[in-house]
Design a binder for these strands. Structure first.
Lengths: 223, 223
DNA sequence: CCGAAAAGATAGCATTACTATCATTTATAG
DNA sequence: CTATAAATGATAGTAATGCTATCTTTTCGG
């Protein structure tokens, strides 16, 4: 039996639900490819439409603008990752093992999850690393936050903070430590590939060093 | 005697040196104000020119484009901060006190330094928090890095890494820990103000909580 | 098979991100 | 003090971007 993983997205993120039509899924799929390839700055609805074989107006029927689309795919990723976290830490009691699992999920290139046919999670992971913070580093952040556009990220952060408290109930900054781990899993990855002198990891090495660094940091802090 | 602090900038950052003319200084000053006010995305050379009372073409004579101008002001800030760090940790022997001083400089709203007349460092600090990472989160990062545009940031990071090693010569990830402290000083500030549930600091509180969190983290890691 | 919804096709418009040109002002060297 | 080079101002123009509008055709559900 094949199982399609359906992720329910905040309705404010789109004008028409892209999961409910072929064109919508194409928009998501090709957006991920194009943003990954050329970066978010040079990504336009015109180029996307040409890539898909539809028109600019067609894309605008699904998303208000490219920033909303970015928030959509990023929120999709966080929701998917939260699901992965739940799935893989289910039945585990030791919070230390849970946290190690989470760090690996955050910092390691995910393999494409076949149960979500039109989303390539490994490309998406790269997009999150480079473009993820651009979703909130705007003048609109407070309005977007009121519309709950960042809820998946915040949920994951809260979830990690809880496990941190399981590990050490007296630790004073669980949420900041959680957001630090999340952000650093990405930033250290970016630095490793593009500005390696800001890290202790060689450029050609894989993410194992980052995982080791984050684990070391996290568990030293939680002692 | 008045002392003007002159910061020598990488020549690749500009077409004509903005420090050497009135118009150039106005460009820097008003850029900082405009980017701070409306955000980098809505900042254009047209608006800047109108603000100053010159023309778009006039601004283009100094900077290739707005991204270069952003890198310029961000690099300026890092150079200036490195100077502050040197100045304030000079004569201090204890690396713990040095690191505490640095954390305070990184995370706390700086007061406007009068020895740099056309730059408002407190506005600049806010810009670094919100826009700083956009300087390198691009497809051009490697070319820009080859042109040494990020050298001031990297120098500061290396400097902090050295002090970390003074603190604990056996610590294995000094550079990654340094970049983590730098980045988190900003990101936790942004989260505190705009997405407070990702932190343990109330929105109306000052940066003292962030300083405490970073110190706690850093010295637990370095034990 | 009908009506509604979605998609396609095309047009248009204000803004952005530049480049080019030429006239005028300002600085500076002889 | 003038010649002249450099910097600035003024204006124009162009391709791309970020949309909105409208009208037609296709698709789909009842």
């Amino acid at each position: 039996m094949e199982i399609e993983l359906q992720i329910k997205m905040n309705e404010k993120l789109f004008l028409r639900n892209p999961e409910q039509s072929e064109l919508g899924k194409k928009i998501i799929m090709h957006s991920i490819q194009l943003i990954h390839k050329n970066g978010f700055e040079s990504f336009t609805f015109k180029k996307l439409a040409e890539d898909i074989g539809t028109t600019e107006a067609g894309v605008y029927r699904y998303f208000e603008n490219k920033h909303r689309l970015l928030i959509y795919v990023v929120a999709w990723y966080w929701t998917w990752l939260e699901y992965q976290v739940m799935y893989r830490t289910n039945n585990i009691n030791d919070p230390v093992i849970k946290l190690k699992t989470i760090i690996k999920l955050l910092a390691t290139t995910v393999q494409d999850d076949l149960s979500t046919s039109y989303v390539d999670e490994s490309l998406l992971h790269q997009i999150i690393i480079t473009e993820g913070s651009k979703t909130y580093l705007t003048k609109r952040v407070s309005e977007d936050n009121k519309d709950k556009l960042f809820k998946p990220y915040k949920d994951l952060c809260a979830h990690i903070a809880e496990i941190i408290l399981e590990c050490n109930p007296n630790y004073y900054y669980p949420k900041s430590l959680a957001s630090t781990i999340i952000e650093m899993a990405h930033i250290q990855n970016f630095f490793k590939d593009h500005l390696p002198s800001l890290t202790d990891f060689g450029e050609n090495k894989d993410e194992a060093g980052i995982v080791a660094f984050l684990e070391d940091m996290l568990f030293r802090v939680l002692k």
